[in-house]
């Protein structure tokens, strides 16, 4: 409406900047993916060319599937991520409900105590965590990772969920109480379904860091049968540094599951961030 003359130029400039930046963003991923489908010679002779009939090859993927136990790693990552998310959501929602719903002595103090962990990274305590896991025999089990990720995710989950639960109408809960529902039923039947969008936000926030973590799998569960996909691909690539086909294919296979998750959840994730849940 106003200043149509300059705004066309501005619009083109804005799209220009964004397109250049998107190219910078996606280029490395693109290069890895296309080269994973090429023969070794083509990878070096024409790194930027798309695979064609002559240069197409799946040799890298064959090596990866033969040498590495990627399905096992994938399964481990799935179990760890899903179990941690379930525990974070269940325990986090329960604690958030207690803090948001009831007035009791120490309420504020408990809230502050649980909020401590938002800013202090759990990695600082790694030495003692490892000692504890060794003492309890949990080292090299998926359980160790699940416990650590649950503890890591709880503070932010409680913080986000309790602010949402304060918004659930009191009338509804009181109606439930008059009908003789126990506090547990009020929580599970009335409140939980209403905060489902917030639960999804918390889940998506926690999913990516858990799936991608390298530190705790490396320290707490490095054994072959409990390796996560992130650690498994790290070790595999380290062993096959000189086999470029295998490395590129392993990278592509590690990118794939995350990309699929991202495509499914990106709307939720972006809505979660932009809705101000982290503010």
């Amino acid at each position: 409406m106003h200043k149509a003359r300059s705004s066309l130029g501005t619009t083109i400039a804005m799209h220009g900047v964004l397109i250049v930046y998107v190219i910078i963003t996606l280029f490395p991923v693109f290069v890895i993916l296309i080269n994973s489908f090429k023969t070794r010679r083509a990878i070096f002779r024409d790194p930027l060319g798309l695979p064609n009939e002559e240069t197409f090859s799946l040799i890298g993927y064959e090596t990866v599937l033969k040498q590495g136990d990627f399905f096992l790693y994938f399964q481990n990552s799935m179990i760890v991520t899903m179990a941690s998310l379930t525990l974070i959501l269940l325990f986090g929602a329960m604690a958030a409900f207690a803090l948001a719903e009831y007035r009791f002595r120490g309420n504020t103090l408990m809230g502050l105590y649980l909020a401590l962990g938002i800013m202090i990274p759990i990695r600082i305590g790694t030495v003692a965590i490892l000692e504890m896991m060794v003492a309890t025999g949990l080292v090299n089990t998926l359980m160790a990772l699940i416990l650590v990720y649950t503890a890591q995710g709880l503070p932010l989950a409680v913080f986000i969920l309790s602010s949402f639960m304060q918004g659930v109408s009191d009338d509804l809960k009181n109606a439930g109480r008059i009908d003789g529902l126990s506090e547990y039923k009020i929580f599970f039947r009335l409140v939980l379904p209403l905060v489902r969008p917030a639960m999804a936000t918390v889940a998506v926030f926690n999913m990516i860091p858990i799936w991608n973590d390298l530190w705790f799998p490396l320290i707490l569960a490095p054994a072959e049968e409990v390796k996560t996909l992130t650690l498994g691909s790290q070790v595999f690539i380290g062993q096959f540094v000189t086999d470029w086909n295998a490395v590129l294919s392993a990278l592509s296979m590690a990118i794939l599951p995350v990309m699929i998750l991202y495509v499914i959840f990106s709307r939720q994730l972006i809505r979660g961030i932009t809705s101000g849940a982290v503010k």
Partner: peptide, 24 residues
């Protein structure tokens, strides 16, 4: 019920995060 709601989160958080932090 307040204690029941709080217990799991507080226990896991204290045992796996706060205690190791101070122990370290």
């Amino acid at each position: 019920h307040i204690a029941v709601f709080l217990a799991p989160a507080v226990l896991v958080y204290t045992a796996v995060m706060i205690y190791p932090l101070f122990n370290t």
